[in-house]
Structure formats: structure tokens, C-alpha cells
Design a protein around this nucleic acid. Sequence first.
DNA 1: ACCATCCTTGACACTGACGTCAAGTTTGAC
DNA 2: GTCAAACTTGACGTCAGTGTCAAGGATGGT
Lengths: 195, 195
Amino acid sequence: MVGVRQFDEGEALDKALTLFWQKGYSQTTMQDLAEATGVQRGSLYNAYGDKETLFLRVFGVYRDRYVDHMREAMDKPGLREALESFFGFVIKSMRTGAPTRGCLSTKTVVGIEELDESIRSEIRDLLDEIEAALHERLSRPGEAEQLALSPQDAARLIVMHTRGLVVIERVYRDEQRMRSMAELLIQLLLKPKLS
Amino acid sequence: MVGVRQFDEGEALDKALTLFWQKGYSQTTMQDLAEATGVQRGSLYNAYGDKETLFLRVFGVYRDRYVDHMREAMDKPGLREALESFFGFVIKSMRTGAPTRGCLSTKTVVGIEELDESIRSEIRDLLDEIEAALHERLSRPGEAEQLALSPQDAARLIVMHTRGLVVIERVYRDEQRMRSMAELLIQLLLKPKLS
DNA sequence: ACCATCCTTGACACTGACGTCAAGTTTGAC
DNA sequence: GTCAAACTTGACGTCAGTGTCAAGGATGGT
């Protein structure tokens, strides 16, 4: 290998992720990305071809990290604790940054009408993966019985609920409200204890 | 009054609404609006000043119409029927058009990072109004008792749920899935009948 | 030490969008 | 019928963003 890449790809993708997340896909320009990563615009084009391809690479990083952290958050002994920790992670993820960054996948899929199918498909896969991880967690023996719904239905409802939280965050920018919304859903999902 | 407006404002705003809703705020250009309304770009600037002001006018039309239809949909005798009809309206509203248009307020607030505060504030008001209408409907004497939550909490949860539906629509484009998600929430919200 | 290969750099062409403006036109009041 | 006010029209200036390209520079294998 001669003529080797002069920038650290991991670091560049990481900084690009921060930017895309903060500003959203369409409002992030290649110039912005060049400045944030310290890599010249031309080099980015040379390395990734175009903005969309670069985004897809960045989105892969986002997805892997998101799912990892989410699984970790859910890995708690009790069902209620697991759900509280899950929503805690989801909320914290959105409320990071100033102004808060919200949710990358939602911003992308809702904000862009002419969205390339490959991007939409990546986002669908991410949601499916989140749903699957929730389903798995909710199916732990001895805990599924505490749910007012089947693990399948509950997982889907929770995924949709988190998407609703994203929108509420964008509109109200009120973390307390988000927390209480999460708590409400947990209450509804967990069967009242038969004393 | 001399030198009078030559286009029908109601008609123009209506066509502009269709376009903004379909394409989203930032992806709709003044040129698009001129073509869709049949009003020259210059005339639009003359009449409204800039794109944002035009959007705010259009959004007013959207809001009034949305809230009216929603109230009408909810005005049903039984609580379950009212909620089903409400979600039916919400889903139908998003699933209109080809490609389906989704939800204007959500597209706008989620898709644009540098959103003028006046637009965000309009959207907040709309959500508050939806919540208030739900709260009112859920508080009908003899029906509030059927809810698993207070009317206040239930209304907020439903609003968030509809925002989640919007995202699900954008990602999966699957009406059946949306209907079943709505049904799930209704199930959870209505106390099991004490036989 | 050489060199082919790939990367980097900065300038460039192109496009699309916003908002402006001066000239022309329509309109209702008198 | 005249006229001033307001609207319409089409061309224009400006800016920002994408993607391209040719020239120059770095690098590792031989």
C-alpha cells in the first residue's frame, strides 16, 4: 500500500457523527464536516464519494453504539428497573449537547422527504434491532408474566413510545416532562401487583 | 382600496399547504409554491414578505382544520369509539397522498434544527390544543372512570403516542401496523371491564 | 534512491435557492 | 376619464452547496 490515508478514520467518523447528530443530515454541509473533522473537503470526497455514503458510514457507527448502550442499560435484574434504565438512556441520549441533539435516526427519516431508500432501510433496521433487543429483555422467564401485553406487543409499543418522546423533546425541550411520560408508560405496561 | 390582490388568497394558501405538507418546509421552494398556486414568486414575496411568514399563514390554516376535524372525530358516544375514531382520523390524515404526506407539524419541528422560535411556538400551541381537546373529551362525566389514568395523563400519553405513530409511518409506511399500535394503546388505557 | 500509487489541496464549474427591484399593469375612488 | 395606490412580472444579484479536477505531495515497497 503506497500513498496512504493521512487522517484517522475512526476519529473523523466520530466527529462527523457529532455534527450530523447535532445539525441533522441535510443541514450539515461537506464544508462543515471538513472543518469539524479537520479533513479537507476534497479528501472526504476522495474517501467516501459523496455525502450520502459518508452518512451511511457514520450511521453505522451510531447504530452500533446506540444498540450496545441500550442493551447495557436494559440489563438489570427487575423489569421495572430495566425499563426505567432503558428510558433513562434514551432520554439522556437525546438531551446531550447544547442545544440538545435529539435523535439522529428520527431527525433523518422525518426531516427528509426525498430520502434515499438505503438510508430509510438502515433506519428501519435500527428500529427493528431495538425492538428485538426489547423483546428479548421482556421475555426473560418469570418477568414476561408481569406485563400487561405480550412481549412482542410491549416491545413495539415501547419503540413507538420512544419515537414519541423524540418529538416531545423537539417541541417542549422539557426533560421532566419526558421522564414523567416514560413513567406513565411503565405504569401501564406493568400489571398491578396482585397482593 | 386601489390596486387589489389578483389571486384568491384562500385558494393559494390551500395549495401552498398541500405542497408544504407533502414536501416539508425546507424542501419546498418559493418556485414550487409559485407553480403550485399559480401565483408568481414576486407576488408571493409582495404579499407575505418571506417564506417563513408564508409558512406561518399556511400553518394557521392547517392547525384550524386539524383541530376541527379531530374534535369532530372524537365526538362519539362511547369512550372506546371516540378513541378509535380519533386514531382513525390521525392515521388517515398522515396516510393521504402519494407518497403519503405524514404530519406537517412533526416534519417541521423534527426536520429543522435552526427553527425560528415563532414556528416552534406555533407547533407547541397546536400540541397543547390537541392535548386540551383530548382532555376535555376524556373528562366527560361517567367516562373518566373507565380510564386507567387521569384524563390529564391519558391525554398527554395519547398526544405522545400520535407523535410516535408519525415516526412509525415515516419508517415503515405500514398502515396496518399503525392501526394495531393504536389499538394496543386503547386497550391499555381502558380499564378492563369489571364484570 | 527511486517510483508508482494513492492521497491532499485549492480552484473551479454548476446548480438551485432566496430575496430585490424597476418597469409595467390593473384597479377602485373621485 | 383620470390618477394614485397597490399588485404583477421577469430579470437580476448574491450566496451557499455539491461534486470535479489537475497539480503537487507523501509513502512504502523494491
